[in-house]
């Protein structure tokens, strides 16, 4: 075969390959897909997402499908790579998605509770009884006791389980990677795993999403009492990509805002999502403070 034929064949193949992924994404979508940050009991998350998908299908008049995300990063990548059209993310992942989206990603809605979200530091009850740690009004008091304690964050990409507790520890002059006997992460990503690890004594102290602790039963709470509550910050949000068109994004937002606490079906969804009253409209700029924390944090843990 002459060389020129080979080259033109190769060029044609390359063009085809380059075109394949992007060509399909231009047309207006016939269905919508979304993911949910897997920061919670997975079976429950899948169930809640399925209920939501059904409700959104009704309200938007087009099929809405749920695509599971394997982890926090997966939820962001799904949105950026065009596997999904909108996604439920945490504070840090929201900022990650906005940045990775290069101007095409925007916040659609947030919960009332997210505008003043908190992290709880919790400790194993036996460790408290042994006097190795107690309630901390000032997080800096942890410094002298940390040497003998094992500690766990939540997922590495979690806002309430990693970013913010690390931020507040840093502000209190504590480098968690050095101060604790062991400082680790919950690879499962679930705040439930943090709670369980502290309850069972697998780790002495943990940091988690306050809402998750509040939802636990009294017996569990008594085995892992709260020793410190952080100041408030912004957290979770619904985030969408404008490749499906601004109009459709607007309709998705409106649908979330319309979920009515007095309607039983809507209430079930709001409860499942931990919304107190209603979803609220929100702007990208409201998460700027999280970006600032993310970017200004000493990055020793990445090196």
């Amino acid at each position: 075969m002459p060389k020129s034929t080979i080259f033109s064949a190769a060029a044609a193949l390359l063009t085809l390959f380059a075109c394949l992924p992007s060509c399909t994404s231009e047309a207006a979508p016939r269905e919508l897909r979304f993911s949910v940050l897997p920061d919670f009991h997975k079976t429950e998350t899948d169930k809640n997402a399925a209920t939501l998908a059904e409700r959104l299908t009704q309200k938007l008049g087009m099929p809405v499908k749920y695509l599971r995300a394997n982890d926090y990063t997966g939820a962001v990548n799904n949105l950026i790579s065009n596997k999904i059209d909108f996604v439920w993310l945490g504070g840090k992942t929201t900022v990650d998605a906005i940045d990775a989206g290069k101007g095409h990603v925007r916040v659609l809605a947030t919960r009332d509770v997210d505008l003043a979200f908190k992290t709880y530091f919790i400790a194993n009850a036996d460790v408290i009884a042994a006097g190795r740690i107690g309630p901390l009004t000032d997080l800096a008091d942890l410094k002298s006791k940390a040497r003998d304690l094992t500690f766990t964050f939540g997922d590495k990409n979690s806002t309430s389980g990693h970013l913010m507790p690390r931020h507040f520890l840093t502000q209190a002059g504590i480098d968690p990677d050095q101060a604790f006997k062991v400082a680790g992460y919950r690879e499962s990503g679930s705040h439930g795993a943090t709670l369980e690890a502290v309850v069972s004594g697998e780790v002495d102290v943990g940091a988690l999403n306050y809402g998750h602790w509040e939802k636990a039963d009294a017996a569990t709470k008594s085995k892992a009492p709260v020793i410190h509550t952080t100041p408030p910050y912004v957290d979770y949000a619904w985030v969408g990509h404008d490749r499906i068109g601004k109009e459709l994004l607007g309709r998705i937002t409106a649908t979330f805002l319309e979920l009515d606490p007095d309607n039983a079906d809507d209430r079930a969804i709001l409860d499942a999502w931990g919304v107190k009253e209603r979803f609220l409209a929100a702007e990208n700029s409201q998460w700027d403070s999280i970006r600032q924390v993310r970017d200004s944090l000493p990055k020793g843990f990445l090196k």
Binding site: L20, P21, S22, T24, S25, N77, S81, N82, K83
Partner: peptide, 14 residues
């Protein structure tokens, strides 16, 4: 199907 949806730009950046 999943792979066909993936945006070229993401693939390249990644």
């Amino acid at each position: 199907t999943e792979l066909r949806r993936v945006e070229w730009q993401f693939l390249a950046d990644f």
